[in-house]
Design a protein around this nucleic acid. Structure first.
Lengths: 206, 206
DNA sequence: ACCGCGATATATCGTGCTGATACGTTGTCT
DNA sequence: AGACAACGTATCAGCACGATATATCGCGGT
């Protein structure tokens, strides 16, 4: 059936992977994890939890934590199926792994991700940004109707993306040099290095 | 009645304020205007146009542009009511004017905005970001479970927001110094800015 | 002893945006 | 002539957001 991996659901599974949590706490941690900008709404969280319940990836138990409060809460915990699904999704580098939110989420779970996959995701994200940069730079045309504020906004946007490109490049270099001695599964495909940094890299379409 | 000013509708009005346009062209320009990141979908644009039509803020005519193409297109143009509405909304500094998308849109139309309003919006945005920064910095807790990637992500996010704060501060300073000759109501909220690193230069000048 | 208030906790609804998809037309290259 | 990219209009399922409703817990004040 292959569900769609709605990013939020994946993040929930990732958190429950460590310990069972109830909705309120889950939201707080998700806001920590994904939330520098806008806060996650319950209108997103609860439907997501229901979807996960229906899919059997998590289950719920009502429990009361003694010592903290005698109040009864609904605690969600991940199922074996959920663990498996999370593992698949976090490993499987889909063509949608480099979009803003999804990327950040995947990055947040990088310590539970293979080095090989980490590199793929970082490089995919990099080429995504580079492509965005090209679009932005090319659109700086217009010549005549050059609005002062508009061009300032444009300049600032481009600069932001450039900074992120630098950040990613550094991360990729760090990954490569650190890898030298670590696990590196022997059955690895011998690193067919078609990737030359910062090249278009053409999303491989799955 | 006071409609909700859905940001996208306002942007459409802003573009049509200059010249009538058809959907396809409208989308391209909106992507230029608002779109550094994800592209605007037709699934957003057309419903927005219908809402504007229903509200009488724009109207549509089918036309064919000779010399370019003999193809018939649906051209939207702003009505007087639309112009008035745009003027009100762009001036009226609601409490929602400093959210990411809305702010960028308003900034993009700054050349059609009063200096006073510009300043209010910039300052509102600034305090919004500062607040975000406080949350982010305060959340750097955890101590023990310090994930390498997670803290790196956090660091980078904070740095990005800090850069935007600097950018805004420079813009505000530029506004203030340029204003010297204009009205400048004495009741200005004075905004005791604790920001230190603000370089005064910021001479955009194309 | 009581009260208010903020934090905890669960939940729903209307509205709007995204990505996918569909379909038809015009212009250009070969 | 036929392929192909760009133009152009449109809809739909899925999902996120903000507002809103409701209720309990723990704390400080009076």
């Amino acid at each position: 059936m292959a569900r769609k991996a709605a990013s939020l659901e994946l993040a929930v599974l990732g958190l429950l992977h460590e310990s069972p949590l109830h909705g309120y706490e889950l939201r707080k941690r998700l806001n920590l994890l994904l939330g520098w900008g806008r806060l996650l709404s319950y209108g997103s969280l609860y439907p997501a939890l229901k979807r996960l319940l229906r899919s059997g990836l998590i289950n719920e138990v009502t429990a009361t934590t003694p010592g903290v409060s005698r109040r009864q809460r609904i605690v969600y915990q991940i199922t074996p199926a959920g663990r498996q699904y999370f593992g698949e999704q976090i490993t499987d580098t889909g063509p949608a792994a480099w979009e803003d939110d999804t990327f950040n989420m995947r990055f947040a779970f990088f310590s539970r991700t293979d080095a090989e996959v980490r590199l793929r995701i970082l490089e995919g994200r990099l080429s995504r940004l580079q492509e965005r940069l090209d679009r932005a730079r090319h659109s700086g045309r217009g010549g005549s109707g050059d609005d002062r504020y508009l061009s300032e906004l444009r300049r600032h946007s481009i600069e932001s993306v450039e900074r992120e490109v630098t950040w990613l490049t550094d991360l990729i270099n760090a990954e490569r040099t650190t890898d030298r001695s670590v696990d590196v599964p022997p059955a690895a495909p011998s690193t067919e290095d078609t990737i030359t940094s910062a090249a278009p890299a053409a999303d491989a379409t799955t």
